[in-house]
Computed example of a mutant assay.
Amino acid sequence: MKTKLLLTLVLAVSIALSAFTIKDVSRSDSISAVQQNPFIVVLDAGHGGTDPGNLGNGYYEKDIVLDVTLQVGKILETQPGFKVIYTRKTDVFIKLNERGPVANEVDADIFVSIHCDSHHTQAYGVGTFVMGLDKSGKNLETAKKENEVIFLEDNYEETYAGFDPNSPESLIGLTIMQEEYLDQSIMLAGLVQNNIVNNLKRKNRNVKQAPFWVLHSSYMPSVLIELGFLTNNTEGKYVNSKKGRKEMAEQIANGIMSYKKNLELATNDFKNPAITEQEIDEAIKVSEKKVYRDINFRVQIAASGNKLETKPENFKGLKGVDRVQVGALYKYYYGNTSDYNVIQLLQTLAKEKGYSTCFVVAYKDGKKLNLSKVLKTEDK
């Protein structure tokens, strides 16, 4: 669906702008822009300090995931265009509710949390999770185990406002905030998962949805990786080994680099023009209309716990940004139109301004709709 949508966007922009001449961006200019605006990755090594994580077969999860996380970061730091930030680089305890906000504070592009799994059987395999809840709820147990770390914190009842890791109702309530980034999170998770499974020949436990507290508070594509089961006699030994840690770190780093490259393809390899607001206005005038009756298309450019004034200077010069509060979260939207071609052009301008991961949403009578379903309906 993403590829199809991207091709539609490129075609729409090309047709709409064919009536006048605009400036091309050279490959060197594109590379320079990437260097000026680094791709920020926040890496989160699970557990730490007084929280050892699981101790399957006598191994310490906190030590394994810290080692793998640091190796992933070291690889990424050697690549142009990357900036890596860690929630922890030593054996310290970081509260669960402080990990995701680290990524929010630096306006990260992605958040990656690394863990090891455990089970009372000889279960084994690699799994990568995104925020959500599968229909059967069968992944609740994995989420419960990771969320129960809150019991190690002082005043956890006040900090987590009555959240109960063992309550399905509490867990389901976590899924709302990350739903805007689900598609991008799944793409990132899939790239990492496929690398580990295919290149290291590990058992595939697939990309799954589960309600993890550490993911719910981050306002960008976010994934949690379970490297394998320390409780499995064979897999635990591999995950704990120097060889296993190195190999998994390489595959995770490669997955992240592939994700970044895919994003760059949307802006560089299709050779989209550098578009100004005036050119967008002209393009809108000549673009073919594609109106959906009673539908309001908008571009979501940001989501934050901070309440910002909707002045152009707060949004890289974009005019007419709206702020909508959803619980404790503020979402910021640019544009409001029933014409899908117009909203695609506005999305292109937002990306040119630096909102590389902005996306189109659809509303009807104030209720958010599934964009792909809206686009499948007949034009009105």
Score class of each variant (00 low, 15 high):
155 N>R: 13
75 I>M: 05
365 D>K: 15
66 L>V: 09
149 V>G: 02
86 Y>F: 09
329 L>I: 06
183 D>S: 13
338 S>V: 01
190 G>I: 00
358 C>H: 07
354 G>W: 04
192 V>T: 10
87 T>K: 09
133 L>V: 04
15 I>Y: 09
366 G>C: 12
98 E>V: 02
52 P>F: 06
327 G>I: 01
115 H>P: 09
134 D>N: 15
97 N>C: 00
2 K>S: 06
228 G>P: 03
105 E>M: 11
31 I>W: 02
174 L>E: 08
23 K>N: 12
176 I>C: 00
152 L>G: 14
301 I>V: 10
84 V>G: 03
104 N>S: 06
79 Q>G: 02
158 E>L: 13
193 Q>K: 06
262 N>M: 12
213 W>N: 04
358 C>P: 03
231 T>I: 02
134 D>G: 13
42 V>R: 12
134 D>C: 00
131 M>L: 15
380 K>I: 01
235 E>D: 10
68 V>A: 15
4 K>W: 01
295 I>H: 07
233 N>P: 00
106 V>Q: 11
205 R>D: 03
281 D>Y: 01
132 G>Q: 07
156 Y>S: 06
308 L>H: 06
6 L>W: 13
240 N>K: 05
161 A>W: 10
9 L>D: 05
26 S>K: 10
179 E>I: 10
10 V>H: 07
70 L>A: 03
115 H>Q: 11
174 L>Y: 09
33 A>Y: 11
123 A>W: 03
270 F>I: 13
221 P>K: 12
313 E>P: 00
88 R>C: 01
13 V>H: 02
342 V>A: 04
202 R>I: 04
345 L>Q: 02
380 K>E: 06
51 D>L: 10
110 I>V: 15
203 K>T: 13
249 A>Q: 13
192 V>H: 14
48 G>Q: 00
214 V>D: 04
24 D>K: 11
40 I>R: 14
251 Q>I: 02
341 N>P: 02
365 D>V: 04
358 C>A: 15
336 N>G: 04
53 G>C: 04
207 V>D: 07
333 Y>K: 00
139 N>A: 08
278 Q>K: 12
278 Q>Y: 03
160 Y>A: 09
137 G>F: 00
179 E>W: 10
148 E>G: 03
234 T>D: 14
144 K>L: 00
324 V>L: 07
138 K>E: 11
161 A>Y: 11
32 S>V: 00
185 S>E: 08
107 D>L: 10
202 R>N: 05
74 K>T: 03
367 K>S: 04
339 D>Y: 07
267 T>W: 04
141 E>Y: 09
321 V>T: 11
207 V>C: 08
195 N>M: 06
326 V>R: 14
260 K>A: 00
122 Q>D: 14
290 K>D: 04
86 Y>L: 02
69 T>K: 05
305 G>S: 02
241 S>E: 02
122 Q>C: 10
157 E>A: 06
171 L>V: 03
7 L>H: 15
342 V>E: 14
273 P>G: 04
